[in-house]
Structure formats: structure tokens, C-alpha cells
Design a protein around this nucleic acid. Sequence first.
DNA 1: AATGCTACTTCCCATTTGGATAGTGCTATC
DNA 2: GATAGCACTATCCAAATGGGAAGTAGCATT
Lengths: 113, 113
Amino acid sequence: MKLEEEDCSKAMLSIKDALEAVEGTWKLLILYSLCSGPKRFTELAREVTGITDKTLSKELKLLQANKLIKREVYDASPPAVEYTITKHGRSLNKVLFELWSWGRAHRKEVIGK
Amino acid sequence: MKLEEEDCSKAMLSIKDALEAVEGTWKLLILYSLCSGPKRFTELAREVTGITDKTLSKELKLLQANKLIKREVYDASPPAVEYTITKHGRSLNKVLFELWSWGRAHRKEVIGK
DNA sequence: AATGCTACTTCCCATTTGGATAGTGCTATC
DNA sequence: GATAGCACTATCCAAATGGGAAGTAGCATT
């Protein structure tokens, strides 16, 4: 199916859904960090430099709600929770590729180098 | 060039540039409206339902700063100002296509239908 | 007995965003 | 003379967002 074949307002909805899933300062950074393997809360807090516990907690919930990551609790003490990127999360790569390559062209166009 | 070849933080920058240019409720709606031809301020305000003058004014400035649209003033009275989508603005279509098609898959995955 | 670790949550506060409403300067129309 | 159209701008206010710091429960270590 092509974009133009779907009516405009419905197409907009899909685009908004997609944007919602990746927008903001942190979501992609967290996802990138999880690309190299499952991580625990504290590990993520260390790797994603600058993020606060509060924000990390909130973003992780949103990413879960969107099924981009998976949360698993292991019964241990101190408690252990592991976050893993899902297949659906990995399927974002085409989107990211287009954003990246347009972004580069955009930089050249707007900043002029 | 492939995404993986660029170092991560630089790739992030490009992606953020791209996201900045399209995120929010209004930018894409305005751009869509301008796809069908140049429009004036009041026309846009009418077509983009729900937007306030203030927000429209602000968004138009941002879109101009990113060279996605062009503003032209015609010396007349009452004053006439026309907004046109640029070539660079139109070059967003690949990005939009990927966002749209991932967004549709995402909807199915998350909402489950 | 005291401290530390994990995975968060809660509280407070400052800044940002967004909407509603009204105003502006000029001209053209009734 | 009054009203309307154009392209905005300004003001006020409410709501949302985001950061910093501290708190929590339970077990493990020193």
C-alpha cells in the first residue's frame, strides 16, 4: 500500500503513533543502549548519561507500553530487573535510517555545511 | 554510507535534527496543507482545524527556520503573505513513508488489530 | 548495629507550553 | 462613519513537563 492511497487523517494517525514512540531526548538513547544486550535499571542509569532515575523510570514504562522493550523480574535479593529490546523495537531501524539520512541532508541544507 | 558506520553520538544528532523538524501536533498538518499549493495565513488557519493564530504563527516561523517552507510578502493592501512548501520540505516524503508504515505495524502490534 | 544495594516513588519547585481573548495598523467596502 | 479583512502580536492564565533531592523495603555485608 502506498501512503497516498490512505486518506490523510488516517495516515496522520499512523505517523503520530510512530513519532510518539521515538520522540523525546531519551527513548532512542535507551533503545541504543539495549541494542548491545539486556540491562538492569542501574546499568541503564549509568550508561544513558544525564538521565535522572525519575525520567528513566517514566521512559521505560512508555517503551514497555509500546512493546519496544520487555521487563523481566528475577526473584532475588537485592531485586533484579532486566530490560530487553524486543523484535518490534528492533524493527524501528528502517525508520531510524530514514530519519538519520534526511537529518544529515537537513543539517547541510540548514546549517549550510 | 550506512548508519552503523557513523559513530553513535553523531548519528543521534542527525536523528534529533530530523525529529525536531517534524515533531509536534502541527508541523506535518501545515506541510500537508501546503502540498496542495501555496496558502495565506488565514487560509492555513482555516484549513488546519483546531490551531490557534498564535500557534500557527510560531510553527510557521519554525518551519521557515528549517527551510521547509518559504514566506513571500506581496506589496498590497490588505497585506498579502504567501507560504509555499520548499523542495527540501518535499524531500521529507521518504521519512514520512517509513514513519507511516512502521506506525501502521506498530498500531497492529500494540493495540492488537 | 550500621551501612549499602536495588529499583524505583514521592515531593517540591521552576520553567515551558498551550489556549483564550483581545488588540494593532492599514485599507476597502457598505 | 462603521464594519470587515489581513497578518499577526500581546497578555493572561492554567496545565504539563522536568530536575533535584530524598525516601522506601528488604536483604546482605562489614
